[in-house]
Design a protein around this nucleic acid. Structure first.
Lengths: 220, 220, 220, 220
DNA sequence: GATGAATGAGCCTTCATTCAT
DNA sequence: GATGAATGAAGGCTCATTCAT
């Protein structure tokens, strides 16, 4: 019998414990993807894992910890994957492309986990109802903004508010994943291509020559 | 000559009833914006409205009806506003710009309601856990895709998968609203300008002359 | 505006009021027959009557009063009918037969009301959960027992515990009504004939000669 | 390795679980007997059992399951008891007598449970307000009718509508139990004797010699 | 007379968590 | 390590009743 003060999170030392934790996290992801954040109860997670409810509170401090881990683990794995895939790319334009590709590539084999992560990121809140993952989701945009600024400095990207545009790109990219996550039939590869082309067109420097919109003169 | 047993939803008739319903819907929106979908309970809505819990089930068939109304009403008002603001615009490019502007403009005075609507749209599910608002949110993209196709036919927009790009534009636009909704300090006007510029750049026809990326040759 | 102390039951004076009360009582009977005692709520009664819930508490002191009236009115009307139909009958045996016939006859045009009455009689309780209609239902048995005793004194009926047998006859008779009430297809006339024959055989004096049961000797 | 989310009804396995279930069922029966079907709430049952409300939903899928079990268990035990006690009886007349005696005997040590069962049988309805136990209560009459027909074939019983009479006998028998259940002072043994005599007189073949009713000729 | 509105208690159920074994 | 059992708060909803208009 463990002492009351012992932290459940520390129990991940043993090999069996780690396996159990992962089994539970996987079940939690499945439930989140299936029924959504609001209906993802500990009971349902236990049922999905084929485990008693007690096991879950034995291995996790709280439901909160499970959800956080489901989201953060994937988020970090994704970040690592992107860094690895991006490091070889030379120059901001290539890195931008490589980064987006890497992310889509990363999630392409983790449809279910992506849905789970998205559910948690969008909904999880702390005790005072403040969204808990706004910050962590924000770092992605910060890194992207920095990349955009570098590209602007090098003359690869045209002039725009880099912070703002970083968010727009991130949003477009997430929508591709969201749609694919909720519609398995969607062709992720072709959607990726469209996305890359869309983003590139939006940020790249282009000739001053622009086909004028004949209607533009008419105003509105 | 109506009864409590009768459908509460039909109680819209009397002037007092309509006012109460609106008060409750407002309170529901406030709660949704404040604590999020999962924590938006009838009790909290009642408390926010300063009425007893019973009043709410008196005026609404179910909690579901309240949430649906909070979301759909704003959604429809927004759609109407966009149609009105867009009708004068001549040509797809102008209509695209006008449409986005109109939507941002519409929500600019409804920050709280927008958050509420977003919470419901993202989370509301039916009894079998299927997202309830996926369809209604989809019609927006369908209309946008049609607009894009018209622009392509007229040579205003470059070649791309119109359906896919419609979603990307929608996502970018929503992100602007999302961020502004959760951070009042954000300057919606300037963000709008950036968004419009971003979208226009992404879809407009442009010269074939493109500044080559010196790194591109190195590949990755 | 009436004073608070005024009894709602007194409001039955006016002609309109009486009509309303009867309309509500009829609706209550319909609901009772339809959904049973436990689910017969004021809301459902109001809905059935096509009237607002408020009307009901305006005309009746409480739900309790409605139910009591639904049951008692029919009970009394039935008793009156029986008395009228029985008065002509000469002698206990004839009166027994006439009484049973009269009761079945009385309810034969009040199927729904009978179900309602039965629901209330079987379930209605006072504040301390004591069945409220045990007494009133008992008077029927008392009267029947008296009749049986008279018949015994006259040698028409054989010897038996008259009080006890009164209950048995009453139960058999009620079962006929119960079954017919819940199964419209049942032929009440033929069931009545069987019932009368059954009861008569049970109570009538008969010859001492009885066909011996050949198995009886084997005993058990 | 079971879960709270799993079907609670299957939790019968463990010895402690079974004991709790029985404790709760007993408490439910006590409450039903005490306050009647309509007022038998989960809260009251929990209070009677001396446990928290949650325990009840932990051990039972729903309130419905508890009530059904309370009724059906006793019903089946009773049926088994009757079969056992009746098997030795030779011939329909003896079996009829033995069956009635067995049932009264069975319930004589289960006064409270009988009341509970009667409450549930009379009131329990499904979601569409159809009485849930009409069928199961009907099988008793079917078996009795068959017995009566056998007796008629053997010449032990006189001619009558066996199906109808089976219901009449059942009703009479239940009334004895009902009265005894609500009035402990009632002498069940003597009531039983009267019942058996009553039934036997009603169904047995008797001599054609019948004391004529002098009043009958007068008609009515 | 009549009614829409409101109330607060109570309904059954699900919840996250605790704890003895 | 693991789990069945238990808890009490909270969930959405229905209830009989009260009351201002």
């Amino acid at each position: 019998m463990r002492t009351n003060g012992e932290a459940a999170g520390e129990r991940r030392g043993t090999v069996g414990g780690r396996a159990r934790r992962e089994q539970i996290e996987r079940a939690a992801a499945e439930v989140l993807a299936d029924v959504g954040y609001a209906a993802a109860s500990v009971a349902r997670i236990a049922q999905q894992a084929g485990v008693s409810k007690g096991v879950i509170t034995y291995h996790f401090r709280s439901k909160d910890e499970i959800l956080r881990r489901v989201a953060l683990r994937l988020f970090r794995e994704c970040a690592d994957h992107i860094v690895a895939q991006t490091s070889a790319a030379a120059g901001p334009a290539a890195r931008l492309r490589a980064g987006i590709s890497a992310e889509l590539d990363f999630f392409s084999s983790r449809r279910l986990e992506f849905r789970a992560m998205a559910e948690v990121m969008a909904n999880h809140r702390d005790a005072s109802f403040t969204r808990a993952f706004d910050d962590v989701a924000g770092v992605e945009a910060v890194a992207l903004a920095e990349l955009l600024r570098q590209g602007q400095a090098l003359g690869q990207f045209r002039a725009f508010d880099a912070d703002e545009v970083a968010h727009l790109i991130g949003a477009a990219k997430n929508r591709v994943l969201d749609r694919w996550a909720s519609d398995e039939a969607l062709d992720l590869a072709s959607a990726s291509a469209t996305l890359l082309d869309f983003v590139e067109s939006a940020v790249s420097v282009r000739s001053a020559m622009r086909i004028s919109d004949p209607f533009d003169e008419l105003g509105r």
